[in-house]
Amino acid sequence: MTNDPEFTLIDRILAGEREAYAHLVDRHKSFAYTIAFKVLQNRPEAEEAAQDAFIKAFHYLSGFNRQAKFSTWLYRIVFNTAISYKRKNKQQFQSIENTILEYSQEGDGMLEKTDKKKYLNMALSRLNETDRTAVSLFYLEEFSLDEIADIMKMQANTIKVRIHRARQRLADELKNILHQEALTL
């Protein structure tokens, strides 16, 4: 059993101190939202999926067996929720907000041709959601490979291979994007 300092907070929540859950949400919301965003590539949808995941986690909290860190358990719920949103809302969630966001990014692009971050995000968006999430978690350096595998419910070896492939693919995609950009100049 892991000795996670958050277990005390969880005990308080389970004892009925419901407001203590706000501390857990505050602590993990950015990481949870990042995972959801890496899967969904859509801010409003990622926000909704991450919120949904926190609500699920609250209701399943008594079933959390404390074999792993709370964050690993929580982010697995976030990842699964985001994946199911991706499947369910593939056609539905073409919101106006997203259209505006994409439009403004395109507009800004004229001013920031040399912005590496923009090209990196473009290359990342060409990966599938699992590879994109795995490689992002790897570089955010919060988790070990075993923990990433646990969050994504895969074997550690499979995750290692996927991250390798994703990095290689990113390099290829970035090269292609820059090549295309150079041709349009």
Partner: peptide, 30 residues
């Protein structure tokens, strides 16, 4: 060099941040 460049760029990856009222919305929807 290509792989190193990706590595450097990815190392600058930062967390995304949700809306300011994220926690309140979650607590309200519990």
């Amino acid at each position: 060099e290509e792989l190193r460049s990706i590595d450097r760029s990815m190392q600058q990856l930062t967390l995304e941040h949700p809306s300011k009222n994220f926690t309140q919305v979650v607590m309200h929807k519990l």
